[in-house]
């Protein structure tokens, strides 16, 4: 009789890293569908290129590092998918490939692979593309247009010409913008699935969205030109950021208190950028900035052990 001997516990819940990644990918299905509906072949092209380039890069790097392949955990798939969804529809194939390689190689593997990266790989790749191809990354095709007519995003319209896009269009997604960011309803469905299944922690999404709500609520009272609460919630990359980027386990705090701080920080930065900077949108930079602060947030938000009095707190 051959018996396995290992340390307790001898039970394990079935969810593993792969399961988390697959569920995140599944939660993105509505947003992917919306992007294909609104941007047609352009969307399919960018998504396929980003996903396959990401997976290929991951495979090649693991081969070079002489390590067992990590494709099974599906994290490269999710990174590629997320990157595609935050790129404009008419991103060239070349740029999409460079972005994907950057996301996996520089965004993740250079730090030691999954779990060791500091920044969200998809967001850092987009920031890189933004620097490399500023024109391409800020030109957005109109939704459901036959000949690629470009138009300004709702946030740019608000900022630069004080034009407000109808809320219903923002809600359904019939606006110009990055592939997966336009349809609020699809992102809410995917996000709700992640929160209900406890794949993503609600503290992150909720604190980020409620901070944005609060600031927008005050700002619109001061001056209607600042845009209504719903306008800010539904436009730009906020919902995608709040449900899929700010909830990335690797680059966000591991403590409960830390997650509130992270989400609130993101919300404040987003609104500062939206109101006061030269850019129309700030979700990407806000999350990247908070990613950089995550190790410090973790260090200063250690929970107090059960039964410890206040005096025992704050130890490193």
């Amino acid at each position: 009789m051959l018996l396995k001997v290992n340390s307790s516990p001898h039970l394990n819940q079935p969810l593993d890293t792969r399961g988390i990644m697959i569920r995140v990918a599944a939660a993105l299905i509505p947003a992917v569908a919306a992007s294909i509906y609104f941007f047609g072949l352009a969307a399919i092209r960018v998504i396929i290129i980003c996903v396959s380039a990401s997976i290929l890069t991951e495979a090649v790097i693991m081969l070079l590092r002489k390590k067992k392949t990590t494709l099974g955990d599906c994290s490269a798939l999710v990174t590629g998918l997320l990157l595609a969804l935050i790129l404009p529809p008419q991103t060239t194939g070349y740029a999409a490939i460079i972005g994907s390689v950057f996301a996996i190689a520089i965004g993740k593997q250079i730090f030691g692979g999954l779990g060791s990266n500091i920044f969200n790989p998809a967001l850092i790749a987009r920031a890189f593309l933004m620097a490399a191809y500023p024109k391409m990354l800020t030109t957005f095709a109109s939704p459901r247009s036959v000949d690629a007519v470009s138009s300004a995003t709702p946030l740019a319209l608000r900022k630069f010409s004080h034009n407000f896009t109808p809320l219903w269009d923002l809600f359904t997604g019939k606006v110009s913008g990055s592939l997966g960011e336009t349809s609020a309803i699809c992102l809410i469905i995917g996000g709700a699935y992640l929160l209900i299944k406890k794949i993503a922690d609600w503290r992150l999404s909720l604190s980020m969205l409620s901070t944005v709500t609060l600031i927008a609520f005050i700002a619109v009272k001061i001056n209607p030109i600042n845009g209504s609460v719903l306008f800010h919630l539904f436009s730009g990359g906020l919902l995608l950021g709040a449900f899929f980027m700010a909830t990335d386990p690797v680059t966000t705090p591991a403590t409960k208190k830390g997650r509130y701080i992270f989400g609130t920080g993101c919300g404040i930065l987003i609104m500062i950028i939206r109101y006061f900077s030269g850019l129309p949108e700030g979700v990407m930079y806000s999350i990247l900035f908070m990613n950089a602060l995550t190790p410090s947030i973790n260090r200063y938000t250690h929970p107090r052990p059960f039964g410890n009095k206040a005096s025992g707190k704050g130890e490193k």
Binding site: N12, I20, L114, G115, P249, V250, G307
Partner: peptide, 21 residues
């Protein structure tokens, strides 16, 4: 399952009855 890299997801922190890390 074999051990894979830590995702730093914090599920262990959330679930610890003694509030540890």
């Amino acid at each position: 399952a074999e051990e894979t890299p830590c995702l730093k997801c914090g599920r262990c922190v959330d679930t610890c009855p003694m509030n540890l890390l």
